[in-house]
Amino acid sequence: MIVALILGFALLLIGIYGMLSQKNLIKIVIGFSIADTGTHIIIVSIGYLRNRTAPILNSAVDISKAVQQVVDPIPSALVLTAIVIGLAVTALMLSFVVELYKKRQSLSIDDYQELKW
């Protein structure tokens, strides 16, 4: 569905913009999680086929013609695992943020300049 594809790319761009432009470390992680959602919407919308139902073959689907009736199951499977990994990665990033705050008492990225240029 082209609308969902456009929405996914828009969210991805917003997330990347947030990661690049924000100074606050927690805001950067929020930008990452928005970009994450955008990517997931892109992948799921690629697997969508018009006028078809979810890939669950219960009595609502004619099993002998199931191939003509369900949407693509592979993007769903990929995104499902990606969401769980996204949670773990976000939690790891946030624990780094807490540790950095303990060292410098600051959430601003401008106070961490050891590697600048």
């Binding site: 082209i2 018009r50 191939v67 369900v70």
Partner: peptide, 20 residues
């Protein structure tokens, strides 16, 4: 990527194999 994207009308071969 958005303007040239063509939505397929049928499941790919791999996906049909998984469904069957």
């Amino acid at each position: 990527l958005i303007t040239n994207f063509e939505f397929s009308q049928n499941l790919s071969e791999l996906a049909s194999k998984y469904v069957r």
